[in-house]
Simulated scan of single mutants.
Amino acid sequence: MAPAGLGQSVGWLSRAIPLLLALSAGRAPALPEVCKYCPGPAHDTSEVDHYCKQRQELKLRARCCLTKQGTIVGLDLQNCSLKELDTFLAEAHSAIVLDLQANPFLNISTSVFRNFTELQTLVLPLKIDCPGGFYAWDNITCGKDSCICHKQRNQCNNTVEPALCPENAYCVPDGPGLFQCLCTSGFHGYKCLREGSFPLLMFSGILGTITFCISILLWGTQLRKIKAS
């Protein structure tokens, strides 16, 4: 026969565990920092607001349009006094709609949008060109104060320059006007010219040995300085 205290503990756990599971399931995912980068909610006239409210499975939180899992599909950073885009924007690489109008940008580098492969609508101030230019988008329309870059093109389907990647490599889109070349299976190294798998164990061993030797050298140098002082 089990002790009374043990039975009470088991009974308490049997009631507490379902409650904890229910609370964790109902808890909303943490809001990404980029959604709070600019104060206030998304503008009700923005492309982000329009896109999000048309789809019941999406929800507006701060400056972001999010899925139930917390993935960013829209980001409204219009009128945020941004002069440049920093690495903070990378957190929104899954965005389909991105509104950056009414900001005093001096220029925007195409590399800022690296990995933004899902981006289909990008709103920019009038003086800023769409990243990648006309060849990166199906359509670019400009109004009085802003330009909208519509439907990102797959650069790997470029018919003007079909040989984008070297032999033994294949092309993968990497954002507006951007792509990267990945080695096919069985090849690695510069321009994927080396055949066979990458010698990971050998590389790790050499790197570890070098790191260890440098650490010993620095430790000995600091020890001599301490004794000298």
Rank of each mutant, 00 (worst) to 15 (best):
T211H: 02
I72Y: 03
L201E: 04
D145F: 14
E33F: 10
V97F: 00
F179V: 15
H43L: 10
C52E: 00
D49K: 06
T184G: 15
R153V: 07
C52K: 02
T221Q: 14
I128G: 02
Q78I: 12
Y51W: 02
C156K: 14
Q155H: 14
C38Y: 06
L218K: 10
L106A: 07
T87H: 11
V48W: 00
E195D: 03
F179A: 10
C183P: 10
I72Q: 01
I216M: 09
P131H: 05
P173A: 09
Q8I: 14
L89N: 03
L6D: 08
G205S: 02
H43C: 08
L217C: 10
P18H: 10
N139W: 07
N139Q: 12
L89H: 07
D174Y: 08
M1T: 14
T67N: 12
N103T: 02
G189L: 05
F88Y: 11
S9I: 12
I96H: 01
K144I: 04
L200V: 03
C171N: 11
V160I: 15
A2R: 14
P131S: 09
Y51E: 07
L23A: 11
I206D: 01
R114F: 04
T184C: 13
C130K: 09
L66F: 00
I128C: 06
L58R: 00
R224A: 10
C147D: 11
S197H: 09
A22S: 13
P41W: 03
L207Y: 00
L21P: 06
S81I: 02
V10N: 08
R114D: 11
G196V: 01
D174C: 08
C35Q: 03
A95P: 02
L85P: 13
A102C: 04
